[in-house]
Amino acid sequence: MESFTAILAEALGLILSGDQAVIDIVLLSLRVTLTAVVLACLIGLPLGAMVGAFRFPLRTAVIVTMNTMMGLPPVVVGLVVYLMLSAAGPLGPLALLYTATAMVIAQTILVTPIVAALTRQVVEDLNEEYAEQFASMGIGPVRRIMALLWDARYSLLTVALAGFGRAAAEVGAVIIVGGNINHVTRVMTTTIALETSKGNLQLALALGLVLLVIAVVVNGLVYAIRGSATRAAYA
């Protein structure tokens, strides 16, 4: 077996040479993950905001359920989505199994509870601050939710980042529903798992490095945006 430095050097070579296989895998990963995060935000932000801003029967049960679902085991989500999308499943006729869409569905299911639960907490805290003023101003429920989401936007960036982190690093669900098919459903995490088992450590490490760099860049951007927002008293 080659030394770690030799493997690292070859991995860096793959990245710097613009290896087409690496680029395809990275682009597909970003497409799947970002689509899932956007969908999760479209569902989770208003859902979390409504639970955070309003009082209704069984609200505590909803909060406990959302918090519990933050820790959904990816392989279980993968298995359930697989059963739904398989030929014998209720969504079988859509023929989505082993497609990027199936991976998006699985990741959306994993990320939505994270976005919803964290949004609920952020919005609830802000609503406590605004509630009396909004009541005095006669703010209706829709305007209230929109205002809370807008005024909490910098905190919610961090929420979206948490969802992105979960989706980008996830392997269990996407490998079950995507099947890790070359050029079709092969993403960074599934490729790392496959190539490591095959002993092709250069490609696995190259993708691992790309994954880390993406995580650092996204974190850095969000940190910078939040920092400037805090300095300007908008966060």
Partner: peptide, 20 residues
């Protein structure tokens, strides 16, 4: 009612400033 309250306003001891 709400319509009546819209003809009133209130200023609190600690002003609530929106993040805007």
């Amino acid at each position: 009612d709400t319509a009546a309250r819209n003809e009133q306003a209130m200023v609190f001891q600690r002003p609530v400033m929106m993040r805007r």
